[in-house]
Write a protein that binds this DNA or RNA. Structure first.
Lengths: 241, 241
DNA sequence: CAAAAGCCTGCGGGTTCCCGCAAGCGCTTT
DNA sequence: AAAGCGCTTGCGGGAACCCGCAGGCTTTTG
């Protein structure tokens, strides 16, 4: 068996190296990559079917890398090993996992035991392993309570990018009013109308800008998600003269 | 000599531990803390004058912790050891360093040699050590080219938080129009008016929201800065019935 | 000292946003 | 079949934003 490690922090990389060889005696070769870019290349070159990968790397983040890897070989087994359980990450991952594929999502803060167990479960047993905290997030996310539908999430990204209602309606093929309706729902779910005191004078906020900040503070959005969305936006804008 | 290490990642923490004891044979005791909160407490308890600390930690970030530590003992020597050279961090640090205090800012990606050298320079020689990349950022930041004055930066934070022009004017003691003038300058410096093609039809962006995103993408703002600003805002809002 | 440059301010109007009201459509429930 | 729910759309108005124009104030410069 061959395993590919994709992780930009050298300390974490060598730690992973140890853990993998300890947990998987049947593993004969371990490749290492320092970022997503390099990870894609090596996965392609060696055809490795077992990958453990960090999200959040400099050159190209884990989600992007995983997407292209899975596009080429949907049966690749990937264990995401991340510092955070931001909703933005969880959502990003579950959006790209091919159906039926085995994958895992464990936090860097979990014990070595759990990490090793996850390695074996995914790579040998072909079973999904999602850390409890992540799982909790996931369910809250897809539940109704303050959960965002995909279309709402899309629009949230759009206003985060600074797009106009009109342009959003154009991009998402909706009427202007529908976009604004979605925004109402978003404002509601983010509870952006708060005015701190018991005073009922309306909120001192620009709801549109406020929504983005609140979303960031709640880890619904993060830098990686923004970056990705921005790239897509640029692409779209070139497309429409 | 006593040294306090404040770092939430256990791998990095033990790495630092090794490096410190290797670089500073005169160091007799090494304390460790897992986050800013704990770091403050231990610094106070042991009265350690030598600290090496991560920025970006869960419970309480490094900048906040450093601020309260320096407030109590301005002669404390602190080496910031961070993953990133975001302008938001650099600005945050240089805003709180007491004048005359020795401090350092080195990236986690630098070599062990440089790290050891920095440790000795700051703790023994009482000299400031700033990584080149960070230094570069710092100068670009305070130069005129696309550099932000402190007052502009303040307003940028305010719109990032989602405040209304009117409320900003109230908070910063300016007229409405002055706030909007500042915004004009900010929009200019962030080059937010771009319309991708050579077409001169005006930008498809809500400038206010767009400015925030561009600032984030340029690392002018980041999560930590937002979080801190939000806390200050909440405080201010309670103050003004 | 006068001119220039910079910041703060008011005014006004064009645009965009925020959102209540209401009507139309498809789907489920009873 | 009728009623109910959710999603979409149009209309309209009040508020907030973006910004050119222009006058006052302070600081800098020749």
């Amino acid at each position: 068996m061959e395993v590919l490690i994709v992780e930009d922090d050298p300390l974490h990389r060598s730690f992973l190296q140890e853990q993998v060889s300890a947990a998987l005696p049947e593993c004969c070769t371990i490749y290492e990559a320092e970022n997503g870019q390099q990870g894609e290349t090596m996965a392609r070159a060696h055809g490795t079917a077992h990958i453990v990968m960090d999200l959040q790397m400099n050159a190209r983040n884990g989600i992007e890398a995983a997407r292209t890897i899975w596009r080429e070989r949907p049966d690749t087994r990937i264990l995401f090993w991340s510092n955070y359980a931001d909703e933005a990450y969880v959502r990003g991952v579950s959006r790209i996992v091919p159906n039926g594929a085995a994958y895992g999502y464990v936090l860097k803060s979990t014990s070595e035991e759990r990490l090793k167990l996850a390695l074996r479960s995914i790579f040998i047993e072909n079973q999904c392993v999602i850390d409890n905290e992540v799982r909790g997030m996931q369910q809250r996310s897809f539940a109704q309570t303050s959960g965002f539908s995909d279309s709402e999430y899309e629009i949230l990204m759009d206003i985060a990018l600074g797009m106009t209602d009109r342009v959003i309606s154009e991009r998402r093929h909706l009427s202007l009013r529908s976009v604004q309706n979605r925004l109402q729902q978003i404002y509601g779910k983010l509870d952006v109308h708060q005015s701190v005191g018991s005073q009922r004078e309306d909120s001192p906020f620009n709801l549109r800008a406020r929504a983005v900040t609140v979303a960031m503070l709640r880890k619904l959005l993060n830098y990686g998600a923004l970056e990705k969305a921005e790239a897509e936006l640029q692409h779209w804008m070139r497309g429409r003269l």
